[in-house]
Design a protein around this nucleic acid. Structure first.
Length: 433
DNA sequence: TCTGGGGTCCTAGGACCC
DNA sequence: TCTGGGGTCCTAGGACCC
């Protein structure tokens, strides 16, 4: 029987910040979402105090009066860099692995003798901690769902020394009997509520139903989870595949926006980011979509969800056509008189760069090559200098004020507690020569 | 006053075709 | 006025994940 390992970073964003702030060990630390909106990561100390994920930042002081927290705005460049180091160490330790999210990876441990699994995990944990400063938890089991469950035990019980292995039916049953339903990978809050109303409390209770009952009451996804809890391996690896079917960039604004010009600046930036993400995975998109929403928390204001999309004549990853299309769509779906709080761009119909069908009506090979060279240069500069070092004119968060002087655009994204970027990458410095 | 951002899959129902 | 049945594709909505 083959085994899977899941390796995931403990309190990932908090751990990233702490690597450069060892003074914050054992202190309550939280990291905020974009715009300093709500808590997205908490140190164990913050969890113990009772801070819940998703708590709006502005409620923190009143919910926990007198409590001291170290607070960070999110710094995704730092987290991407730190986790890339962790991932490269994981890849070195296992021949087949797939990154599942920013802080998590699955590995196949086919052929590894069962008596070595635990040592493999403990060694990897130590190596990652020593070389990157990142604490990880490792779960090992015959399928991905049980491996996730094992990693949960590894994270919460010190006795496992950061690595928990489920390698027998006794251990599987014991793990299920102590595992709350809503923590099962594939059973979310909604399904947990439904199952609890039917009398289930633990993963074990759920696994005792009949397969047909699960299929009839729910769907094939949940039935697959049910099978994995029973020990079968049926979540395909392809589900972890990294090539995306859509790429989205969206943000909430710190204030609200009514003006089309202001909205266009943001949308141009999101479109540009989408194009950059496409190029990074050597892909092109054939459909561009744009949305803009009003603030759904404001019952006193009229609500509107603008959205629209358009097919490109020729699939693209170049910044210019994607930005232009996005702005065009925005002009069509924009309605004056609303207070917009959030907007985004999504690119779909994604194909590999090679083998893209070019439409001859629209296609100009020379122009295409020029745009490609330009984008490559811009990507390189932005990787070194930080994103948005070089942008299109429409992307600038400034606009002319009265006497021809530029003023900083009032609705930029807020990051009041941002750490620096202490982890400059060598690869980027080398590219300078 | 302030309430995130990115993805995936499945299903039901409608449109459309023969 | 009567007005079947089956297949496929698309879309919207709802669930899940981190």
């Amino acid at each position: 029987m083959g085994y899977y390992a899941v390796i995931d970073c403990d309190n990932c964003y908090v751990s990233c910040e702490r690597v450069f702030r060892p003074d914050l060990r054992r202190k309550p630390v939280v990291v905020l979402s974009n715009n300093d909106g709500c808590v997205v990561a908490r140190s164990n100390e913050a969890k113990q105090i009772g801070v819940k994920a998703g708590t709006p930042y502005y409620q923190l002081a009143s919910l926990f009066p007198g409590q001291q927290f170290a607070v960070f705005s999110s710094n995704y460049e730092l987290y991407a860099d730190m986790t890339a180091r962790v991932m490269s160490m994981i890849r070195a330790a296992a021949p087949v692995c797939f990154r599942y999210s920013i802080d998590e990876a699955f590995c196949r441990l086919d052929g590894m003798p069962e008596n070595l699994l635990k040592t493999w995990g403990e060694t990897l944990h130590k190596r990652i901690l020593r070389n990157t400063g990142m604490p990880v938890s490792i779960g090992i089991a015959p399928n991905k769902t049980l491996a996730k469950m094992a990693s949960h035990y590894a994270k919460h019980y010190r006795g496992y020394r950061h690595c928990c292995v489920i390698d027998s039916d006794e251990k599987r049953v014991k793990a299920l009997k102590h595992y709350p339903l809503k923590e099962v990978w594939g059973i979310g809050r909604r399904y947990a509520v439904r199952l609890e109303s039917m009398g289930d409390r633990t993963a074990w209770d759920f696994s005792c139903h009949h397969a047909d009952w699960v299929r009839l009451q729910f769907n094939v996804s949940l039935q697959r989870t049910w099978m994995e809890l029973g020990g079968k391996d049926c979540v395909p690896d392809e589900q972890m595949a990294s090539h995306k079917k859509s790429i989205c960039t969206s943000r909430s604004f710190s204030g609200m926006i009514t003006d089309l010009t202001d909205l266009s600046t943001h949308v141009a930036n999101y479109a540009s980011r989408c194009a950059e993400k496409l190029r990074r995975q050597h892909a092109m998109a054939s459909v561009v979509g744009v949305f803009a929403d009003t603030n759904h928390f404001r019952d006193d204001l009229p609500q509107y969800q603008a959205c629209g999309d358009r097919r490109l004549l020729t699939p693209a990853s170049a910044t210019q056509p994607i930005v232009q299309t996005a702005l065009d769509i925005l002009r069509h779906i924009y309605r004056p008189g609303y207070h917009y709080k959030r907007a985004g761009v999504i690119v779909m119909g994604i194909q590999e760069e090679e083998g893209v069908q070019t439409n001859f009506i629209d296609f100009d090979a020379e122009r295409f090559k020029k745009m490609k060279r330009l984008d490559e240069a811009v990507d390189r500069i932005n990787r070194i200098g930080g994103s948005e070092t070089v942008v299109l004119a429409t992307q600038q968060y400034t606009r002319p004020a009265g006497q021809g002087k530029a003023e900083v655009f009032a609705n930029a994204i807020r990051h009041d507690f941002r750490s620096g970027n202490p982890s400059t990458r060598w690869s980027d410095l080398i590219e300078l020569h």
